[in-house]
């Protein structure tokens, strides 16, 4: 490893550090108290109630959670979301890392490429995406026109339940710009001296990559993995925009948060929506915890 291991700070400093920490944390603690905690606990309470937004919530115990088991849309949304998370995240991160590595050094016009690759993410999840996506994957879209050259008559990829989800996975991979930028920033963080020293030692490019770049980048890879996974579990806008909020065709793009939204905002069943949200939160927490446990085996910190 590139960094040296050393002792923990002495215990005598602990006290003053604790005091300093709490001063540093004043904004965060205020935010937690005022902005985060109130809605968080409110939603936890609502998960055990029948709450139609317009009248006061009524406690109904575990009813909301019981209801999930027999709710076919709930299960459909679980399926859709899991497929999406496990397919699109590895793809997106692989793209982002690969491109970040290519763009990190030694090429003319880097600024141009970086901006070009980031362009799709800039557009974000604007309403325009729905129309763009139809232009590509629709009945009369680019892909089918290309297939037409080979005499294949394709149907709309967005309206086929078997392919609709894939178009959203493509959408997510297409916007790999954000994790790419974070990777780039992470690569910038690696001290050039380490590479110089390695070169003096005669280490090959491959060896520099596996022995310097990858280990020092692992905290950033880990960050992207965790946060992109959390984000993917909560995918909402893309699905909402592309399917017009329905999650169709035939529930094939009914993402979990889209279903929460439908229950809460369209159906006015905020109690059930809150219960669904807490189940999601627990699921994400479990996945994140697993990531953290596994991280001990592959993430290296400079402060160890």
């Amino acid at each position: 490893m590139a960094t040296t291991r050393s002792r923990r700070p002495r215990a005598s400093k602990l006290h003053s550090q604790g005091l300093a920490a709490h001063i540093f944390l004043i904004p965060w603690q205020l935010g937690l108290l005022l902005v985060t905690a109130i809605p968080l606990f409110a939603s936890l309470y609502l998960a055990f109630t029948d709450y139609n937004i317009l009248s006061s919530p009524e406690f109904n115990g575990l009813e909301n959670f019981r209801r999930m088991f027999s709710d076919e849309y709930f299960w459909a949304s679980v399926r859709v979301t899991l497929v999406y998370v496990f397919v699109s995240i590895p793809l997106q991160l692989a793209f982002a890392l690969l491109l970040a590595l290519i763009l990190d050094r030694g090429l003319r016009g880097l600024a141009f490429y970086r901006s070009a690759f980031y362009l799709p993410s800039l557009l974000g999840t604007s309403v325009a995406i729905a129309i763009l996506w139809r232009q590509i994957f629709g009945d009369d879209g680019l892909i089918n026109q290309a297939l037409g050259l080979f005499g294949v008559h394709g149907e709309s990829w967005l309206q086929n339940p078997a392919t609709a989800l894939s178009t959203l996975i493509v959408l997510n991979v297409w916007t790999f710009g954000s994790p790419m930028v974070i990777f780039l920033a992470g690569l910038r963080q690696i001290p050039e001296e380490l590479y110089e020293a390695a070169r003096v030692d005669g280490a090959t490019v491959v060896r520099q990559f596996t022995h310097i770049t990858v280990p020092l980048l692992t905290p950033i890879i880990f960050f992207n993995l965790i946060l992109q996974t959390i984000g993917a579990f909560q995918t909402f806008t893309q699905a909402h925009v592309v399917s017009g909020g329905t999650g169709g065709p035939a529930n094939s793009t009914l993402f979990y948060t889209l279903y929460i939204y439908q229950q809460g905002f369209a159906n006015f069943d905020m109690g059930y929506a809150s219960a669904l949200a807490w189940v999601l939160m627990i699921a994400i927490a479990v996945v994140t915890a697993i990531h953290f446990i596994l991280s001990k085996y592959w993430v290296f910190y400079g402060d160890d």
């Binding site: 550090q17 965060w28 946060l227 905020m270 929506a273």
Partner: peptide, 30 residues
């Protein structure tokens, strides 16, 4: 503070920070 300073609850605070992004916006917004 969370990355460098030593104090009790540090790990808990970190976990809380992460947990706060796990709940979808739509149930918090009201």
């Amino acid at each position: 503070a969370l990355a460098r300073l030593e104090f009790r609850m540090r790990k808990v605070y970190l976990a809380v920070t992460l947990a706060s992004v796990m709940l979808p916006l739509h149930v918090l917004v009201i």
